[in-house]
């Protein structure tokens, strides 16, 4: 008798995974936008790494990166949200979203460094591992959220677990304040998740 709920749970989990995957496929960018996005990213990286702006170097880089971008077009841009026109999207991203994120993370990093210095001097630590819930589902979004959580004051991401279509993060918190999941999530994630939900899926 105790086996039936297990089976039901597995079936439900597989079904939920499938629905999520289909919604993600439907919300992808069209393929030429993906190719051009990957191409531009690889081209910028090539120019900066080779430190050389002569025409033959640029043409060689353009050919090689176009060949790579045709094959690897799903690698970088698989998890982006589809919304609006291309030009509008790129302008929004480069003029509003990216500077906003950089400013937020710079101040968070400064605050976290000062907090680690204070903890080293006074040794007033009270560590604990808490579990919080996020609304992101794609791999890139979860990765960037976990990196940002690691750089914010007093927290370190331990593990990611996906269960029943919802994503949970285990966070090691050096200065434990609350055990409630919503309050802890609000305190740890802050406004980074709101920012990430606009760009990634």
């Amino acid at each position: 008798m105790s086996r039936v709920p297990f089976y039901l749970k597995e079936r439900l989990e597989a079904l939920n995974e499938k629905v999520l995957r289909e919604r993600l496929e439907a919300s992808n960018l069209p393929s030429w936008e993906r190719v051009i996005f990957t191409w531009v990213t690889l081209m910028v990286f090539w120019i900066v790494i080779s430190t050389n702006a002569t025409p033959e170097n640029l043409s060689l880089g353009a050919a090689v990166t176009l060949l790579i971008a045709l094959f690897m077009r799903d690698l970088l841009t698989k998890d982006m949200r589809r919304s609006g026109h291309v030009v509008e999207k790129i302008l929004y991203f480069s003029l509003i979203y990216l500077p906003q994120y950089l400013v937020i993370m710079a101040f968070r990093l400064l605050e976290s460094n000062l907090k680690v210095a204070k903890n080293v001097i006074f040794m007033d630590i009270n560590p604990g591992i808490v579990k919080i819930k996020t609304d992101l589902h794609s791999d890139t979004g979860i990765t960037i959220l976990a990196n940002s959580i690691t750089l914010t004051p007093g927290t370190l991401t331990l593990d990611v677990k996906k269960k029943l279509g919802e994503t949970y993060l285990y966070v090691h918190w050096i200065d434990l304040e609350t055990l409630n999941r919503e309050k802890a999530g609000e305190k740890i994630k802050g406004d980074i998740e709101e920012w990430l939900k606009k760009v990634f899926w």
């Binding site: 976990a146 370190l156 331990l158 434990l176």
Partner: peptide, 24 residues
């Protein structure tokens, strides 16, 4: 990224954390 991987590996390796609450 490397610090996240090392933290999970240390937990699986058997290092018991000195914490108040351990939901993991």
């Amino acid at each position: 990224m490397v610090s996240h991987a090392l933290a999970r590996a240390a937990y699986r390796y058997g290092v018991v954390p000195k914490v108040v609450v351990d939901m993991y």
